[in-house]
Amino acid sequence: MGLGSDMYRQQILDHYKNPRNYGEMEDPDITHVGENPSCGDTIRMDIRLADDGETIEAVAFTGDGCAISMAAASMLSERLAGMTIEELQELDTDDVTEMLGVDISPMRVKCAVLGRQVAQDGVKIERGEIDVDRTKTED
């Protein structure tokens, strides 16, 4: 069968049904919200940094949306711990699909990358590089 069936492998369904690091963090160093207006997916990412101000110590997220966006955010929350914010900024779409371990059909890529985009924009806002209230993905 096609791309889609692979999209719902056990790992994705598992992260969707049992999201990791789900919840809001108290006093995060970085916090940001974003949405896919066309799907209605919303994600909030909270990040706590280590004392060096560079290394990501912990990540939490909350949100509402499809299995792809939620599973991707859940996996990302695990993956980011221990990375530097520089490394976070370098994550691209391929890194996200690799992390998911499945082929994402073109129409669903924006679901998969929402969590990453929110985390990256959160860092940029913290650094004063951009000024947005809410990340919105393109259609």
Binding site: M1, G4, S38, C39, G40, C66, A67, R108, C111
Partner: peptide
Amino acid sequence: HAHDLSSILNDHGVAVRAGD
């Protein structure tokens, strides 16, 4: 989610619309 549903239906060759 309706988008997941329509992706899975698509695997079965079933074309429906999902969205607003």
